[in-house]
Amino acid sequence: MRFLLSWSGGKDACMCLDTLIKQGHEVVCLITTASKEIGTTFGHGEKREMIRAQAESLDIPVHFIEVEMNTYTETFIQDVNMLKERCQVDAIAFGDLYLPGHREWGEAVAEKTGLKAVYPLWMKQAEAESSLYHFVNSGYQALIIRTKNELGLEKWLGQTIDKKFADELSNTEICPMGEAGEYHTFVYDGPLFKKKITINPGEVVAQETTKRLEIDSFSLTGK
């Protein structure tokens, strides 16, 4: 099947892509929502050029859906309908794991566009811990770029997800995969990446409910 893939730039979206490719499907376009007012990505607050770097490294086009909060769903459907015809796709994939509300939204959107909604990573909440260890061993490299306040995770900002991180989360009440937004990531290398994204991290910015790592600069290097 030919897919559009909802792409945040983080580990879940990356593992969704990896799973689809291993199943023999073709991902023909990454779709990323971006704030019309601010310009950064809607989900993680990432600079668009970082997402473009991932798309270049993966050799898959990316389309930014320009959204505003009060018309988010309508704009998403409009752009997916346009991409459906332009890219001749059969389905749209999402990297959500176990939150029913997220899946219900995606399935409703897909139904209005005539596409099949697919959730390759869907699991029980209890499986989240093993899923994080699976990512750690997958060969993909993800930088922790945002954490919720009051969870004690800010010390991990700018660090790459590894076994030590997974071990620490396994002893807490925090979802190991950060499914409720406890932390966000940016994948910069891995098996499907034709180039590595080398990142120079900047300062940590405190926001209302989170702390976010600024990226000073980055470069693409051959592998």
Score class of each variant (00 low, 15 high):
149 N>D: 06
188 Y>R: 07
205 V>A: 06
168 E>T: 00
168 E>N: 06
134 H>L: 07
184 H>C: 06
188 Y>E: 00
158 G>R: 11
191 P>Q: 02
207 Q>N: 14
123 M>H: 15
108 A>V: 08
114 G>I: 06
108 A>Q: 14
193 F>E: 02
162 D>H: 02
128 A>H: 14
206 A>T: 12
137 N>R: 14
120 P>T: 14
135 F>M: 03
139 G>A: 02
207 Q>V: 06
114 G>M: 09
178 G>Y: 08
163 K>W: 06
134 H>W: 08
120 P>F: 09
175 C>G: 03
145 I>M: 13
158 G>A: 12
99 L>C: 03
154 E>A: 02
113 T>E: 04
193 F>D: 07
100 P>I: 05
109 V>F: 14
157 L>F: 11
116 K>N: 02
129 E>T: 15
110 A>K: 09
202 G>E: 08
204 V>T: 13
206 A>D: 15
161 I>G: 03
131 S>P: 02
190 G>W: 01
185 T>A: 10
106 G>D: 09
189 D>G: 04
173 E>M: 11
149 N>H: 14
188 Y>F: 06
118 V>H: 13
120 P>A: 09
138 S>F: 04
200 N>S: 07
167 D>Q: 14
115 L>W: 03
134 H>S: 15
95 G>H: 13
167 D>Y: 01
206 A>R: 15
138 S>C: 05
200 N>F: 02
149 N>A: 13
104 E>M: 15
99 L>W: 14
201 P>V: 01
158 G>K: 10
107 E>C: 12
189 D>W: 07
187 V>H: 09
146 R>Y: 04
148 K>G: 11
164 K>H: 06
104 E>K: 10
117 A>G: 11
167 D>T: 05
196 K>M: 04
125 Q>N: 14
131 S>G: 08
98 Y>P: 05
99 L>F: 09
162 D>A: 02
172 T>Y: 02
187 V>W: 13
165 F>Q: 13
143 L>F: 10
136 V>A: 09
165 F>M: 07
203 E>G: 08
135 F>S: 00
148 K>Y: 00
177 M>P: 06
101 G>L: 13
155 K>T: 05
131 S>K: 12
141 Q>I: 15
123 M>Y: 00
139 G>D: 08
182 E>S: 07
176 P>G: 06
121 L>K: 00
144 I>T: 05
197 I>V: 01
94 F>M: 08
106 G>P: 10
160 T>A: 05
187 V>T: 15
108 A>C: 01
171 N>C: 08
168 E>F: 10
181 G>K: 08
107 E>W: 01
137 N>W: 01
116 K>G: 03
180 A>C: 07
164 K>C: 04
199 I>S: 02
